[in-house]
Design a binder for these strands. Structure first.
Length: 336
DNA sequence: TTTCGGTCCTGAAAGC
DNA sequence: TGCTTTCAGGACCGAA
């Protein structure tokens, strides 16, 4: 289940092979993997994300995507949170973009910084670099043939079993202080590995909200890149109950959430990300090792590595939360 | 403005 | 053995 560390591993793995490569051909094998893609001249959201695509809409998106991407030159891939994008050929007058330079702008800002190939891996999305004659992987939805000046011809396959992910061509919108970000990712907050992430604003924001800490960590408008796995791990490390209201956290506790979030991300990155049931692999199809380092997520009924008490698994908005009721006490009274 | 629940989707596992 | 149900999850949308 790709969250920030997994997407960053993919981004870093793609960079050497795609930066400077030219797109030779594109084949959309399943238009449902283009849920975020809007053909030129069409209103965003028509038959949009989260809704079933009609056959006609699917064909229209597929042909537009194939036509516009073919022949383009790819730049270095960038990322914010779980969104990753590859800017297409330098638009005239645009500045170089770095991940740390990307900043949120209001949706709807006029696109003036070119176009990018945007990717969101959803739950089971994979971007796989393959030799042009390699055997097919399962669930390949979109196939791209590229030619790199040093590495020659390669295949870049987007595979996605559960179709929660998608590719799209999206307009880049300028950001302050430098750079640009795809419009579809402009509304989300910076991620905690971003050098421009505002720790003070994050702490203030979560302390002003009455909803549970886990919901706040999963809110991509407050901090991006956190999913169910790393939310549970962050809360366990910080000894915060998933349902502890943000307003019940002291300044120090709220800041410690951020500290532990960065800690768990750093460790996951070092171990190549978290892989379950082959739902996440790097660009070479290899699994990460961080699943072995999980303390809470997926360990319902097992002993807490810290206190030995049983890890509890409870329903949480259609999924599950894992925490240690002994280490992560629920606040008994509102903070005053 | 904030919060909640439904929707999209596939395949493994469990239950009957 | 074969069928049905449940579960996993991120992002988005509409309703309250």
């Amino acid at each position: 289940m790709p969250e920030l560390p997994e997407v960053e591993v993919v981004r870093a793995g793609l960079a050497p092979a795609v930066t400077g490569a030219r797109v030779l051909a594109v084949e959309v094998m399943d238009p449902r993997a283009l849920k975020r893609h809007t053909p030129l001249g069409e209103q965003p959201g028509l038959g949009g994300h989260g809704r079933t695509l009609s056959a006609e809409t699917g064909r229209s998106r597929a042909s537009d995507f194939e036509r516009r991407l073919t022949g383009q030159t790819l730049q270095a891939p960038l990322r914010r949170g779980k969104f990753m994008w590859i800017p297409l050929a330098d638009p005239p007058g645009s500045a170089p973009v770095s991940p740390g330079a990307a900043a949120s702008l209001a949706p709807g800002t006029a696109p003036t910084a070119g176009t990018a190939l945007l990717a969101h891996l959803g739950m089971s999305g994979q971007l796989l670099l393959r030799a042009t004659d390699a055997a097919d992987d399962r669930h390949v939805r979109i196939r791209t043939w590229i030619e790199h000046p040093e590495h020659g011809e390669l295949r870049l396959d987007f595979a996605d079993q559960r179709l929660f992910g998608s590719l799209a061509l999206d307009a880049l919108t300028p950001t302050a202080p430098l750079g640009a970000i795809p419009q579809q990712a402009a509304h989300i907050a910076r991620d905690p590995l971003d050098e421009h992430f505002d720790d003070g604003a994050f702490v203030a924001a979560i302390r002003s909200r009455g909803v549970g800490a886990k919901k706040l960590l999963l809110d991509q408008r407050l901090v991006s890149g956190v999913g169910n796995i790393y939310a549970d791990e962050t809360l366990w490390r910080a000894r915060v109950h998933p349902e502890a209201p943000g307003s019940s956290l002291t300044q120090r506790r709220a800041a410690s959430l951020l500290h532990h979030m960065r800690e768990v991300f750093a460790q996951a990155l070092a171990e190549g990300g978290t892989s379950f049931d082959e739902q996440y692999v790097n660009v070479n199809g290899q699994a990460g090792y961080f699943a072995h380092s999980l303390n809470a997520y997926g360990r319902g009924g097992e002993a807490c590595p810290r206190c030995g008490g049983p890890i509890k698994r409870v329903p949480f908005g259609g999924r599950s939360s894992h925490f240690c009721p002994r280490c992560q006490r629920r606040p008994s009274a509102p903070n005053t």
